[in-house]
Simulated scan of single mutants.
Amino acid sequence: MTQTHYETNDRFERGQRALAEIDGAGGQKVIDALADIAPDFARYLLEFPFGDIYSRPGLDLRSREIATIAALTALGNAAPQLKVHIAAGLNVGLGREEIVETIMQMAVYAGFPAALNGLFAAKEVFAAHPA
C-alpha cells in the first residue's frame, strides 16, 4: 500500500506537535542536530515515534514516559536519550520521585550498573531543571 503525501504530512505534523508537547526544546535540539547529517532520520523520528506511537490513545503521556525512561535505563547505553526523556517526564508531569523509582526498579531487571547510570543521568537533569 502506497502512502499518500497527505498521510505523510499528517504523521509529520502530528509528530511535531507531540514532540513539542513532550520534549519541548530538548526534542527540537535533537531534530536540529540531525539536519546536517541525516535530515531524513530526523523526519522518521517525528513521523514514527511521535507521529504514530506517542500519539496513540491507550496510554497517557506520563505512562509513555515512564515506559520510555525504564526502557532507556535498562538499555544501559543510551544516556543522552535517557536525559532527554527524563526532562520530558518532568515536562509531562512526572515527579522526581516517580522518575527515581522507575530507574531504581530497573536494577531488578537490568542490573545495578544500568540503574546507577540512570540515576546519575537523572541527577544531572534534575540539576538543570530546578523543582
Rank of each mutant, 00 (worst) to 15 (best):
D60W: 07
L59G: 08
E13Q: 12
G89T: 02
G95E: 15
L82R: 09
A18S: 15
E98S: 11
L94P: 02
D52G: 08
T73H: 04
I31W: 01
Y6W: 12
H129Y: 13
D36P: 07
R43D: 13
A78R: 00
A33E: 08
I37E: 02
Y109G: 01
D10I: 10
A67F: 09
V100M: 13
L82K: 07
K29E: 14
S63F: 02
E97C: 00
H85N: 06
G89I: 00
A110T: 11
L61V: 08
P57Q: 13
E65H: 07
P39C: 01
I31L: 04
Q16I: 02
E65R: 01
A20T: 12
F120D: 12
N77T: 14
E21G: 04
H129M: 13
A42G: 13
I86V: 15
R64W: 05
I69A: 04
D23T: 12
Q28G: 05
E47C: 00
H85F: 03
A33M: 07
E101K: 11
S55C: 07
V125L: 06
H5W: 02
Y6R: 13
R11N: 09
V92W: 02
T8C: 10
R17V: 12
A115Y: 07
E97D: 15
A128H: 05
A122R: 02
I103T: 07
T2D: 13
Q105K: 13
V84K: 06
D10G: 01
I99D: 00
Y54W: 10
F12C: 01
L72M: 10
T73P: 08
P57V: 12
